[in-house]
Design a protein around this nucleic acid. Sequence first.
RNA 1: GGAGAGGUGGCAGAGUGGUUGAAUGCGGUAGUCUCGAAAACUAUUUUAGGGUCAAACCUAACGGGGGUUCGAAUCCCCCCCUCUCCGCCA
Length: 426
Amino acid sequence: MLDLKLIRANPEKIQELIDRRNGSYDVQPIVELDRASRELETKRSQLSARGNEIGKLIGKKIGSGSNPQGEEIAQLKAEGNKIKTKLSELEPQEKEFKAKIEALLLELPNLPDESVPLGKGEEENVEIKRWGDEYITDNQNPLPHWEIGEKLGILDFKRAVKVAQSRFVNLVGAGAALERALISFMLDTQIAAGYLEVMPPVLVNSASLQGTSQLPKFAEDSFKCSNDDLWLTPTAEVPVTNLYRDEVIEDSELPIHHCAYTPCFRREAGSAGRDSRGLIRLHQFNKVELVKVVAPETSEAEHQTLVENAEAILQALKLPYRILELCTGDIGFGAAKCYDLEVWLPSANMYREISSCSNFRDFQARRANIRFKQAGKKGTQYVHTLNGSGLAIGRTMAAVLENYQQPDGTVKVPDVLQPYLKREVL
RNA sequence: GGAGAGGUGGCAGAGUGGUUGAAUGCGGUAGUCUCGAAAACUAUUUUAGGGUCAAACCUAACGGGGGUUCGAAUCCCCCCCUCUCCGCCA
C-alpha cells in the first residue's frame, strides 16, 4: 500500500511513477476522496470535542451536588442529544470515505524504483548476468524432463491426474527422494548463510493474503477453502511475512532472515494451455523461500545478498542460469524492484524462471502493519520486506533432470546432492 | 463438537457507568549519587489520524463490529481468539 500522505503531497509524481507500469491506475480519485474525508473529519472531531465536554461537565456537576433531574442538566443533555444526532450522520459518511480510500489504495500497485528499467513487458527485461555457460550440454537432442522422468519411472503424471486434476504430479522412488534431497540441500545451504528456518501454516487467512498483496486484486489465483476463511498459500512469502503482521519489532531484532520450505498452491487461472506438460507449471509445487524483514536503509543491500543466496544454489548444482532485472512493465504488483533468476532448460533451448527476488520496500509492511521501533526514538517506522525463491523445487528438479541427463538415458546426480541421495546415478 | 473461564498499555496486572488514555509493579529512557558500575532516589515513558513552519490543540483506540446513554474498559447483542474440562482424532 502506498503512503496516503505521499500521494497527497505529490500526486503528479506518484501518477508518473505508476504509469511506468503495465496497466492503468488513477490516483486522482484518491486525492479527491482524501480531501473530502479530511474536511469531514475536522467537522466531526470538533463536534465530538463539544460532546465530550458536555459529558464531562454533567459528570462534574452531578459529582458536586447538582440535581441530576434539574433544569441545568436537562439543558446539557438536550445539547448532547443534538450533537449525537449530527454525529450519527457524519460518522458513517466519514467511515465510508475512509473505507473507499482504503479500498482504492489496496488496488494500487507499488511504485517501481527509479532505477528500474522502463519497458512495457517481459521482452524488455534486462539481462544483467549469465553464469555457467560451460555447463551447457552439447547434446543435440536433449529429452524434456517429463520424458526422462517417465522413462526412469520417477514422475507419474497420469495417476496424479486421476487422483487430483491436470497439473499435478506424483513423485515415485528416486523422484520423491530427489525432491526431498533438493529441499534439504537448499534449506541447509540457506541456514548456513544465516537464515532461520521456519515451517509455517500453509493455510492462511484473508488478512494474511491482503498483507502481502495477493488480495484483493488476485483472488482468482489462489485456492480458497469453501467453509472457512482460509486459503491454500500460493507461496511461503504469505505465511512467513505475516508472522510479523501487526507487530512492532525492536530494531535490535532486525534484520530478520527466514527460510522456509512449504508446498505452494496456485490456480494458474489464465495460463490454460501454457506449459501443460512437465513440472514447470503445476497447481501444487514445493519451494524453499527466503524472506527478509529489515530496516529501510538496509533493504537495497539486503536485496543484493538475497539474490546472491538464491544464486548460490544454482552454482552449487552447476546449473547454467542468467539474471534478469525486470522492467517496469513486468515487475510484480507489490515489488519496487525485482530480479528473476532463470535456469537453462536444454530441451526447450531456453532459460526458465526459477526464482524471483523482490524488494517490496514498505509496501507490504504498510498493508500488514509491520513496524519497528528505534531505541530511544519516539514513534515507529514501517520495516521493509523482501523475498525470493531459493529455489522452486519442481523447476530445479526439471533443470537437474535435463542438464544431467546422460546418453544412456540415466541421470547423473549432482555432486552436492549425492550425500543426500546416497547414490550417483538415477 | 459440548460445558465453563477469559481477552486492558512493551510485559504483568487493577479497574463494573462520570474530569480514566487508564492505578500499581516490571521493563525502557534521562538525571542525581559514583572514578565507573550496581543499588537507591527523582523525573519521564502508548499508538494512529487531523491540525501547525514548529508547537499548542482536537479526535480515535481497553480483541473486532453494532447498540443503550449527555457520558462506556465498565451495561446489552453479534463475531473472532485464547485457556480449562469432556468428546473426537494424526
